[in-house]
């Protein structure tokens, strides 16, 4: 019997917990990818080691299809693993995690296909792969080289699964809406479809662009103000807010191609400021996690 959606999460949690990861919970803000979670954005900075795994909901307003597309949604879940520093056997650990959820190497054609990853808003980049299983992309695997514009030392390895994608593969269903969620006959459709329709309509048709533009400016100002007060965590929250606000504006078609670059640059500048402040703060604290090795 293939894993249900919730069993998939539980199995991954258990496996990565055994590998020495802290299992964190989702961060309570709207973000486009698990990378935005402070458990990644902050923890990959500076010299302190950290191994963490967590589920994170992702919102990508532009990807909404009113629930009509079998595998494209504006809201979905990522499973994210950060191993810092990236261990020598990280690829083997990853392949073992696939076996745990029922994807065996001797049954599938698993391929590591070159992919250079970049998040222009976070000023983050790395080299790695898309991992393909039988021709289907199931994972993004990246060795982080920079974040917030800062060069990373040591290097963190990041593994990101799209949980719905991998669940459809495991359960052998064509559409995410048909996924068996876990309890009784509850499907993914039962839980998320109505919301997907509503948010698609909101993102594309009804969000208040004027208000959002005003908010973006406010959030940008807030990041500056909070950084002056050395309140790094709160300042970063407003970077996340600004980024999501930009995504909403973009989905609404309220930003021209030329302006787009400008907005992305502004978010990146905020992220850089916060990253630098975070490293300084940790340094002043004496990089506490260094002692925990």
């Amino acid at each position: 019997m293939a894993l249900s959606f919730q069993e998939l999460i539980l199995t991954l949690d258990q496996y990565w917990s055994r590998q020495g990861c802290v299992i964190q919970q989702p961060y309570d803000m709207e973000k486009g990818a698990g990378t935005f979670n402070p458990a990644t954005f902050f923890r990959v900075l500076g010299p302190e080691p950290y191994h963490v795994a967590y589920v994170d909901p992702c919102r990508r307003p532009k990807d909404g299809r009113y629930g009509e597309n079998p595998n494209r949604m504006q809201h979905y879940y990522q499973y994210q693993i950060i191993l810092k520093p990236s261990p020598d056997n990280m690829v083997e650990m990853y392949l073992e995690s696939l076996e745990q959820i029922g994807i065996r190497q001797d049954e599938h054609d698993i391929r590591f296909v070159e992919d250079d990853w970049e998040s222009p808003t976070l000023g983050a980049s790395g080299l790695g792969w898309q991992v393909w299983m039988d021709g289907i992309e199931i994972t993004q695997f990246t060795f982080f080289q920079t974040t917030g514009g800062l060069e990373l030392k040591p290097v963190s390895g990041e593994i990101t699964f799209g949980l719905e994608r991998i669940a459809t593969v495991i359960q052998g269903v064509d559409s995410v809406w048909d996924l068996h969620y876990g309890s009784k006959n509850i499907t993914y459709r039962d839980i998320f479809l109505q919301n997907e329709k509503a948010f698609s309509a909101f993102n594309f048709e009804h969000s208040n662009a004027k208000m959002l533009l005003r908010h973006f400016k406010d959030f940008e100002g807030e990041v500056k103000r909070l950084l002056e007060l050395k309140l790094v965590g709160p300042a970063y929250d407003y970077v996340i807010k600004a980024s999501h606000t930009f995504n909403l504006l973009d989905a609404r078609g309220a930003i021209s191609v030329a302006e787009r670059t400008n907005f992305i640059g502004r978010v990146r500048a905020m992220a850089r400021g916060v990253a630098t402040a975070y490293v300084k703060e940790r340094e002043e604290l004496g990089f506490p996690l260094m002692k925990k090795g």
Partner: peptide, 22 residues
């Protein structure tokens, strides 16, 4: 015709998934 790395236990599984992608 696709080229794969290694020989899986049951090629049909791999073929079906590839057909789905195409």
């Amino acid at each position: 015709i696709g080229v794969i790395n290694g020989t899986p236990k049951d090629k049909q599984v791999v073929i079906r998934a590839n057909e789905g992608v195409l």
